[in-house]
């Protein structure tokens, strides 16, 4: 805690990402005044020029680690923070940019940049937890702002946050949304995806595309088998698992099915 304020000092850090997750904090329109009344946002470059030094009580970390500088910086963030919460699919799984992990990134650099020599990047886009210990992950692309609020409320109350790790299906059934896979044969990733979004897509007659990443015991191969029965081709199945959480090992189990081995020397985390 700061000597001046009784409120927890919160810092928001960004790595390779689109800023959408940290904007969820500003997107807490109705609750925003309560938030700034309850916590001290001491480092949040997206919102304020005030950039106080650490240590911090809570660091919210957005984005994946894609450069040497990122890899050093995240160590610094960890050292400065009592609690480190990674927020969003980039920070928790490597994000959409982890698609580079299956390609030759130097070829991209040569193709895209006029002076490739100026570009220093890592071969892989990896989640924060592959670099430093993470206390809590908030999933989603972007995160659900009420889950962020829940984490802050729980921290202030000194209780465990209610962040369910079961399937999206449980949310669909609780809110009475008819399963789009069963009623319309849509290739829905809900059964292998972590709840927390409020099962928005199926509520609008769209299949879940897995932006919250794998649920606690995701059986992606079994769902892929079901997709095959529904008539999806192997490339279609692989593509459906290779989006925002492509690098999560539970989804890679499927997407690497026939597409060959992952980029050399990197197995990712397994429990």
């Amino acid at each position: 805690m700061s000597s001046k304020s009784p409120h927890p000092r919160i810092a928001v850090f960004k790595f390779a990402s689109c800023d959408g997750c940290q904007l969820s904090l500003l997107d807490l329109e109705e609750e925003l005044l309560d938030v700034v009344g309850a916590v001290d946002l001491v480092y949040f470059p997206e919102a304020s020029r005030r950039m106080a030094k650490g240590p911090y009580d809570i660091a919210l970390v957005e984005g994946s680690i894609t450069t040497h500088h990122d890899a050093e910086q995240i160590q610094h963030v960890r050292r400065q923070s009592k609690t480190l919460i990674s927020i969003g699919a980039c920070a928790t799984a490597g994000g959409i940019q982890s698609l580079r992990n299956w390609q030759d990134v130097s070829e991209y650099v040569r193709t895209v940049y006029a002076k490739p020599d100026f570009i220093s990047t890592l071969k892989m886009s990896t989640p924060v937890a592959e670099h430093v210990p993470v206390d809590l992950e908030l999933r989603g692309c972007p995160i659900q702002k009420h889950q962020l609020l829940e984490v802050l409320s729980a921290t202030l109350a000194g209780r465990k946050p209610n962040i369910p790790t079961g399937s999206v299906c449980l949310e669909c059934k609780r809110q009475g949304t008819a399963c789009v896979l069963v009623t319309a044969g849509m290739p829905c990733l809900g059964p292998v995806t972590q709840a927390g979004c409020g099962a928005i897509c199926p509520a609008f007659d769209r299949p879940c595309y897995g932006c919250f990443g794998p649920m606690e015991s995701a059986n992606a191969p079994a769902l892929a088998q079901r997709f095959r029965v529904l008539g999806l081709s192997q490339p279609e199945i692989e593509r459906s698992f290779r989006t925002y959480n492509a690098w999560a090992w539970q989804f890679r189990r499927v997407s690497e099915g026939s597409a060959g081995a992952p980029a050399a020397g990197h197995e990712g985390r397994q429990p």
Binding site: E31, D34, V35, G37, A38, L149, E150, L152, S153, A154, L156, A157, R159, N162, G166, S167, C169, L170, K173, R174, C179, G190, P191, V192, M215, S217, N219, A222, L223, Q225
Partner: peptide, 29 residues
């Protein structure tokens, strides 16, 4: 190996009665 552990069966079952209790608190306590 086929089971998705998704919980659709228990949710759809007319007799499955299990519940969980969540404690929630407001930001201003």
């Amino acid at each position: 190996k086929r089971c998705l552990s998704c919980g659709n069966c228990t949710s759809a079952c007319p007799t499955c009665f299990c519940v969980n209790y969540e404690e929630q608190s407001s930001l201003d306590l």
